[in-house]
Every structure is written in C-alpha cells, then in structure tokens.
Simulated assay, not measured.
Amino acid sequence: MRQRQTAKGAFSLTNPAVRAWVYQILAVVVLFSFVGYILHNTLTNLHHRGITSGFGFLNDAAGFGIIQHLISFQDGDTYGRVFIIGLLNTLLVSALGIVFASILGFFLGLARLSDNWLLRKLSTIYVETFRNIPLLLQIFFWYFAVLRNLPGPRQSINAFDMIFLSNRGLYMPMPLAGTGAIPTLLAVVIAVAVSLVLYRFNRRHQMATGELRRSWPWIIILILGLPALAQFIFGDALHWDVPALRGFNFRGGMALIPELAALTLALSIYTSSFIAEIIRAGIQSVPYGQHEAARSLGLPNPVTLNQVILPQALRVIIPPLTSQYLNIVKNSSLAAAIGYPDMVSLFAGTVLNQTGQAIETIAITMSVYLIISLLISFLMNLYNRRKALVER
C-alpha cells in the first residue's frame, strides 16, 4: 500500500519535478500555438489582399544599378544576384571595421596605461569623445562634412599619377592576375608552410637543449625568395590597372567610394574606443605581481607584454571583445543612412519597394545578420576555449 502511495505521489502535481515538466510542456504548447496563429493570420491576410508569397522573385530581373559591387553586375541581373552583392558589401565593411577597430583599439588601450602623461591623456580624450557621440552622427560627419567636401575629380589629390582622392572616392591601381599568379601563390603557400615547420622545430630544439637557433633569416629568405623564383620562371604574378581621368570621373583601377570610407571610418573609430577600454581592463586584471616577476627575471617590456601579460589578459578580453565584433556587424546596417549598398539598403530597401515581398526580404535580411553573428560568436568562443585555464 505504501509503495502504491509513493508511486502515485511521484506523478502528482505536488511533486516539484512533475510540476516543472508540466509547466515546461505548457510553455512550449503556448509558444507553438502563438507562432502558428501568427503564421495563419499572415497567410490569410496575404491571400485576401492577393499578395503572392514565396522566393520566386529572386529570379526576376532587377531594374537598377549598384554603385559598388565586388562581383560583376548589370541592370538586367536578378534579385538573387542583388542579394549576393549586398551580402558581400556587408561582409566587406564588417571585416574592415573589425580589423581597423581591433588594431586602433589595441594601441589605444596600451596608450591608456602608458607612463607618458601626454600620450595617456590624449588617448583618454579620444576614448571619452568618440564613445559618447552617437554612431549615426559620426557617419554623417565623415560623409557630409569631410569626404563630400573634398575637391572634384579634375582637382583631385594626386599621388604619383596612380592614386587619386576626390569627392567621388579614392581610386587606386587594381592588381590583375598574370601568367605567374598560380605558381607564385603556390610558392607563397609552400614558403609559409616550411617556415612554420622550421620555427616549430627550432623552438622544440631550444626547449630541449637550451640552444637558440634563429629562424627569421631563413623565413625571410623563403617567403621572399620562393615567390620571386616562381615569377622569374613563370612570369609576373600581377599586373596593374591604373585609374585615369576620362570625362567627369576616373575609369579603371579600384575605387573606394565615399560611402564605404565614411562607414568604415565611423565604425572603426567608434568601436575602437570601446575596445581600448576592454584592452585596458584586461591588462589591469592581471595581478601586478606578474609584472614584478617578469622584471625580476630581466625581461624587456615588449617580451613581458607579449609573453606574460597578454596571454593572461586575453581570458578577460575575449568575451566583451566578441560583443564589440557583433556590434560592428549589426551597426553596419546604418549604411542605409548614406546610401552604401549593403544588405539593408539593397534588399530590405530597394528590393522590398520594387517587389512588395516585405516578409521574404525582411526574413532574408534578418537571417543573414543572425547567421553572420552566430558564426563570429562561434569562432570567438572556440578561440576563448583555447585560451581558457584548464584545471588538471
């Protein structure tokens, strides 16, 4: 009898474990019911208004041009190609922003801890200024107040008749693949691989015997010599398409349009002020005894920073740094304010207005940003796990 009562009580709502499962099941049912209601309501309204749904519009021709495209694009190309161009432009400005913000933020973070009073105060003014001005205003400043006020193409700033800076953008020579491009690329890969093997071998030899073998002379010879030999045998790896003024603008070469430059500058400068504080906090989180121990061993300051302080500080730096990288990707959507052709401007803007497929275009744009953010988070978490302390 007691066993029956115990079994009956195990499946009773008075049991906390049973209650927890019931509440979770109810929450899942309510969630799926709400999502189902939203989908049913949306499809019903689309049907009543005669709006077709689906992604077939991606095969339709887009009747507009794009000022920047990393792959070829013509007015008659499809909306699907517009999506690829918008995605590539978003990835481009995000990558540039991450690289420049990381480099600038790292040096600013070190400057905030410098013994030099002037350098420390200047970096503090930089951080406190740019992180407290809204990003959109900084984008407007660089675009309208700086880049759009540069001289026109005919009065452009000229460097060696190869690089031209005007209000139309920065025009530079564009490298084009030559006959020796593939052999030279293979030579570079081989040189880097052999250099890594040589470096690791010399490090192991030093750890085992204490004898120091310098790797850098051979590494320089490999990295410079092998590609040069490949070009001597197979021909030039690159030749250059130099821009030239024709009519009212430049033709040829590679162009950095003002919209991209303004967005990259604003994202880099704004985010670097936050990264600088992350770097500073990470370095200051390392106990000062580590600095003193390194000095007692006679280690120079650069070696102390690279080999002692930064490896420990990275465990504090990486998690908030990941958030800043995600913010760069998401903040790049502000490009629509100055007409830079990213995902939001092209797909959630122009394509939506032309096709009327609001749900599809918005869903695609949201999914792209979600996937990019999850991928960055995944890679940074992998790196974070590699740098984490492991108890043995």
Rank of each mutant, 00 (worst) to 15 (best):
L122R: 01
S123K: 06
T124L: 04
E128L: 05
E128Q: 06
E128P: 04
T129F: 06
T129M: 04
T129Q: 03
F130S: 01
N132I: 05
P134H: 03
L135K: 02
L136H: 04
L136M: 07
L137H: 06
L137S: 07
L137F: 13
Q138C: 02
I139A: 00
I139N: 04
I139K: 06
I139L: 00
F140M: 05
F141D: 00
F141G: 02
W142G: 02
Y143V: 00
F144L: 00
A145V: 02
A145C: 09
V146N: 00
L147R: 06
L147I: 08
L147V: 00
L147H: 00
R148E: 05
R148T: 04
N149Y: 03
N149T: 08
L150T: 02
L150K: 05
P151C: 01
G152W: 03
P153A: 03
P153H: 02
R154N: 00
Q155K: 00
Q155R: 00
Q155F: 00
Q155V: 01
S156F: 05
S156E: 07
I157H: 08
I157Y: 10
N158T: 07
N158Y: 05
N158E: 09
A159Q: 11
A159Y: 14
F160W: 08
D161E: 12
M162K: 05
M162Q: 10
M162W: 08
M162R: 07
I163Y: 08
F164D: 06
S166L: 04
N167R: 03
N167S: 04
R168W: 09
R168S: 10
G169D: 13
G169S: 12
L170Q: 13
M172N: 08
M172Y: 09
P173F: 07
M174Y: 11
P175H: 03
P175N: 04
L176T: 08
L176S: 04
A177S: 03
G178Y: 09
G178A: 04
G178K: 06
T179P: 14
T179Y: 11
G180K: 06
G180R: 02
I182Q: 13
I182Y: 15
I182D: 14
P183Y: 03
T184D: 03
T184V: 13
T184P: 08
L185G: 10
L186G: 14
L186H: 12
V188G: 04
V188C: 12
V188D: 08
V188A: 11
V188R: 10
V189H: 11
V189T: 12
V189D: 09
I190A: 15
I190W: 15
I190E: 13
A191L: 07
A191D: 03
A193P: 09
A193Y: 13
A193N: 10
V194A: 13
L196Q: 13
L196N: 14
L196S: 10
L198W: 15
L198H: 09
L198K: 10
L198F: 15
L198A: 10
Y199V: 10
Y199I: 07
Y199F: 12
Y199A: 14
R200A: 14
F201W: 13
F201N: 07
N202W: 13
N202Y: 14
N202G: 09
R203E: 13
R203K: 12
R204W: 11
H205Q: 08
H205Y: 15
Q206T: 12
